[in-house]
Nucleic acid binder design. Structure first.
Length: 962
RNA sequence: GGGCGAUUAGCUCAGUGGUAGAGCACUUCGUUGACAUCGAAGGGGUCACAAGUUCGAACCUUGUAUCGCCCA
């Protein structure tokens, strides 16, 4: 049965996948031969997800580690699963409903809508699993988990064997609540007006956009005036005028309606005369303008704008802090959609109450202030950006905008006019990372994790080295965030998610319990209503390491596989997920969930740009697998995985590694054609130097690969394998073996077959973690095996197999062949022509090396005979080889000028090297301070180079005689 | 503004103190019995710049320039 010339990936991959699956090859503990476990938790892709290049990269690295450990006999588990992805999934299903003409979410109601989501999940939730299988991921697919498993409505499709994740989430919430780590509060949170839910700080993207800064006058109450004085650095007065207003700059005029105060810096002399007075918000019905106090606070920056800041505690995070410090009421202006409120009492009524508050006649509770709608009737119900326009217009038309003089051209003349002072300037605006709409700081009741209370052990775990974050720069980022951590808002006003286990009675008192029955019992038998909100998706994925192993039950898996070992994930979710997992596992089971975190960058296109649909530079890993095979993509991923490096994926690179699979295939094909198959796995005995040499090289490779993988240097492992297979086995060993296999005696032939078979097998074994498909296919094609390759033992041989004599002899042979080829090419000797070689002054070692390998030297250098001479004939090109003076007698063909140029060039290079080495050795300080082996090596090197130089010089001399 | 990182061959990037590397691209040659998805040979680099530490610096220190990323 002759092998095909190339590996047919599209035919073989599904077949091999099926074989692995049937064999249960990836089950937890498969091929286990020792006690240590090795566990990786997959970063659960969104259940809505489709495989993109980032997943492909990330999962390739995980699979490499998993397969490597499984082959080494560890009790290995790669835990797969999906994340329920609250917002993303709810969005996807709503889209589907709209596209298929079904009732909307609101029309369906909560229960029916959730049924639709579960249905959708059953239908499409397995997509990513199939795609990961195509990549060759050796997860224990029977254990596939889901972060919503066991929640209400779960029909258990696609994660039938996963534990009851929901119970774990609820238990943790209740426990953390009882420990005082979770609390409910009315706080300013990031509100997404599109999804009408609170989101966490991390889900907000601050993007710089073109914005405006308006300057308005807030008139002083009762027409009061003061002298406004500006001075320069020296204290010289630069401006002094009577004012009846205070000037305020704002980028958000629509929030003026909710102002509770104007703040100035306590050191700001300009406003000292009016601190404590009231001023008027210059918007709203003229007869009912609200008055607010002018207060002092450290927050305003005296050099920014006018130095005076309006304080809208309910719509700005900085103002919120000022308002809390100053006891300023928080007036909410918008509804959940980001429109101006239209609820509550008429403006006049609300404004009257607010005025009493400003005057100190009345105090409001937070809820009372929140109930007050201070939006004037004509603005109620308007979108916030419409309201902004209306407010600006109103103020300007009333003459309360700060005016500046602007010059303009008209009919060739330069004229001036007075215009409102509006600065065009870039401002940072918050956007929802999912909805892409402007986020509104909003005062709402939410649930929070008191992050400050759980952050300590998480910080300590990394500081103490219990958890190592790679690359190290990740640790700095981690510290920086955790040291400045804010409360984590975990409630979401969504339907798809873990519903918060809290029930309220009619009086608003609440009871936190795992079940409704327990809550009722707590309440003393009252009628209760459950909190409609669900938990942030990241709250549940934060429990991934234990929830997937059956916690809170005391399971066999928990005991065997927890704590897990390595987490491989993208840099972008260090805070979202990694830090929170550490915090939560520390809080719940008092252990670090893993000992190593490997963070990688985003996978980009070949130019380093982010892949995006709009740019059109998206590479679809499934198309790549179709075209080049999964192994080529995987090898490319491994090869580009330099720690901390930018990941640039190009089709050209993938093509190159696809070619590498072909190269490997053909080396195996050569072995098969020469019956060099059927290795027993034990290192073969060898007598021929060639065979001893390649065995030693293989041993070095195994060490290099293990050292690289141990250090998560996937690129080093991949590059070493590539260099070995292509540069050592294919370029040299296969060629060396030909004379032995074709013309050698029976014993040599048998030995070489055995060694070749072993070497190819070792290539397959060592390459398997990176390229599982082609190696498995070849493994089973080349012999009848006891075990599949995925379960074959990883070798442990090492440098003891290196034979120094074989090593130096073969390197000498390679050097000689390369030198002959080089001279031939530069002298333009026809490629097919066999040439004689002359030699003199051959050392014993050189003679032995030559004679031991004459057949293959002759073949690979295309030489016909070696003649010993006492003097080189005229027109002989000298070879730069140690241990003997070799030459190519090319009297008829030699191009004297070309040969002179060649010699001079190599002499130039030699002179540079020799100069450097002599300089160093001539420096007594070098000899005194440098390590002995460095000095020794330099001496030996120098001697060698000097010998070469002598040969070249003599050759040049001979040319001159021609 | 704060933090982190990068700058090495035409391109993409390895290289943590001891002779500057790989892949691709390029040039020349090749129907050599595994492979043209191939083989052989070759050209190509003041390691961003400046100063310092050192016997010795692409590598360590400081500064400068340029470019990224994260956070405000």
């Amino acid at each position: 049965m002759a092998m095909e010339k190339t590996f047919n990936a599209s035919e073989a991959e599904p077949r091999i996948s099926a074989m692995w699956e049937e064999a249960g090859a990836f089950a937890a503990g498969a091929n286990r031969s020792r006690d240590e476990s090795f566990t990786i938790m997959i970063p659960p892709p969104n259940v809505t997800g489709a495989l993109h290049v980032g997943h492909a990269f990330n999962n390739t690295l995980q699979d490499i580690l998993i397969r490597w450990h499984r082959m080494r006999g560890f009790d290995t588990l790669w835990q797969p699963g999906q994340d329920h992805a609250g917002i993303a999934t709810q969005m996807q299903v709503e889209k589907m409903l709209a596209a298929t003409g079904q009732p909307t979410r609101a029309e369906l109601g909560r229960q029916k809508f959730l049924e639709k989501v579960w249905e959708w999940k059953g239908q499409y939730g397995g997509t990513i699993v199939d795609q990961l299988k195509r990549l060759g991921c050796s997860c224990d697919w029977n254990r596939n988990a889901f972060t919503m498993a066991g929640a209400e409505g779960d029909p258990r499709v696609g994660h039938e064997n996963s534990p009851n994740f929901h119970d774990a989430v609820i238990k943790v919430f209740v426990e953390m609540y009882e420990q005082g780590l979770i609390y409910r509060g009315k706080r300013l949170v990031n509100w997404d007006p599109h999804f009408e839910t609170a989101i966490s700080d991390l889900e907000v993207e601050n993007i710089e956009v073109a914005g405006h800064m308006w300057h308005f006058k807030y008139p002083l109450a009762g027409g009061a005036t003061y002298t406004y004085v500006e001075t320069d650095e020296d204290g010289t007065v630069t401006l002094s005028e009577e004012r009846d207003y205070i000037s305020i700059a704002t980028t958000r005029p629509e929030t003026m309606l909710g102002d509770g105060a104007v703040a100035v810096h306590p050191d700001d002399a300009r406003y000292a005369p009016i601190v404590g007075q009231l001023c008027e918000i210059p918007v709203g019905p003229k007869e009912r303008r609200r008055l607010i106090p002018i207060i002092t606070d450290e927050y305003p920056d005296m050099s920014f704008g006018s130095g005076a800041v309006k304080i809208t505690g309910a719509h700005d995070f900085n103002d919120y802090e000022v308002a809390k410090r100053g006891g300023i009421p928080l007036y909410r202006l918008m509804d959940t959609k980001g429109a101006m409120r239209s609820d509550g009492a008429p403006y006049e009524e609300a404004a009257t109450v607010a005025l009493d508050v400003s005057k100190g006649l009345k105090e409001l509770t937070i809820s009372e202030a929140d109930a007050l709608n201070l939006v004037p009737e004509e603005l109620r119900g308007l979108d916030r950006f419409e309201a902004r326009k209306a407010v600006v217009e109103q103020i300007t038309s009333e003459g309360l905008a700060v005016m500046v003089t602007e010059s303009y051209e008209e009919e060739g003349e330069t004229l001036t006019r007075r215009v409102p002072y509006v600065e065009n300037k870039p401002i940072m605006q918050p956007f929802g990372d999912r909805s892409k709409v402007v986020i509104e700081p909003m005062l709402t009741d939410q649930w929070f994790v008191d992050a400050e209370k759980v952050v300590g052990p998480a910080l300590e775990a990394v500081r103490s080295g219990e958890i190592k974050i790679m690359p190290e720069s990740g640790e700095k980022t981690y510290y920086h965030w955790l040291e400045n951590i804010e409360p984590w808002c975990i409630s979401r006003q969504l339907w798809w998610g873990h519903q918060i286990p809290v029930w309220y009675d009619e009086d608003g008192a609440f009871y936190c319990a795992a079940t409704e029955a327990e809550a009722i019992a707590q309440s003393g038998g009252k009628t209760l209503t459950r909190d409609p909100d669900v938990l942030d998706t990241w709250f549940s994925s934060g429990l991934w390491p234990i929830g997937t192993l059956g916690w809170p039950e005391d399971t066999e898996e928990m005991r065997r596989y927890f704590p897990t070992d390595v987490l491989i994930t993208g840099f972008d979710i260090l805070f979202f997920w990694v830090a929170r997992m550490i915090m939560m596992q520390k809080a719940v089971v008092k252990e670090s969930p893993f000992h190593t975190v490997y963070l990688h960058q985003l996978v980009r296109d070949e130019k380093g740009k982010k892949m995006s649909k709009t740019t059109g530079n998206v590479i679809d890993p499934l198309e790549i697998i179709d075209e080049f095979g999964a192994d080529a993509l995987r090898f490319t991923n491994a090869q580009m995985a330099a720690l901390g490096g930018v990941l640039k994926l190009s089709k050209q690179k993938i093509t190159g590694y696809r070619n590498f699979t072909t190269k490997l295939w053909n080396a195996a094909r050569f072995a098969e054609m020469n019956e060099a198959v059927g290795s027993e796995g034990t290192v073969p005995e060898a007598t021929a130097m060639v065979n001893k040499w390649i065995i030693g090289e293989t041993a070095k490779l195994r060490e290099t690969v293990d050292v690289a993988l141990e250090a998560y240097r996937f690129n080093d492992a991949a590059n070493a394998l590539y260099a070995f297979v292509w540069g050592k086995v294919c370029d040299w060993y296969v060629e060396f073996s030909k004379p032995l296999l074709l013309d050698g005696d029976a014993a040599t032939r048998a030995e070489t077959q055995a060694v070749m078979a072993w070497v190819i097998d070792q290539c397959l074994v060592l390459l398997h973690p990176i390229m599982p498909f082609i190696t498995e296919e070849l493994w089973q094609t080349l012999g009848t095996r006891e075990k599949i390759l995925a379960h074959t033992d990883w070798p442990s041989y090492g440098s003891a197999l290196v034979d120094p004599a074989a090593d130096s002899e073969m390197n000498w042979v390679i050097g000689l062949i390369e030198e002959i080829r080089s001279v031939r090419a530069q002298m333009h000797v026809p490629a097919g022509l066999k040439v004689p070689v002359v030699v003199r002054n051959m050392s014993v070692e050189a003679q032995a090396a030559y004679e031991g390998n004459e057949a293959l030297i002759k073949k690979l250098a295309r030489m016909d005979a070696l003649h010993s001479v006492t003097d080189f004939p005229k027109g002989t090109a000298a070879l730069s080889v140690t241990g003997a003076e070799f030459g190519l007698p090319l009297a008829d063909i030699i191009d004297v000028d070309a040969e002179k140029a060649r010699l001079e060039k190599s002499l130039g290079k030699l002179a540079k090297d020799i100069g450097g080495m002599r300089g160093r050795l001539g420096n007594p300080k070098f000899v005194a301070s440098a390590p002995e082996d460095v000095v020794e090596e330099t001496r030996a090197n120098l001697a060698e180079r000097e010998e070469e130089e002598g040969l070249m010089k003599a050759a040049l001399q001979r040319l001159a005689d021609l």
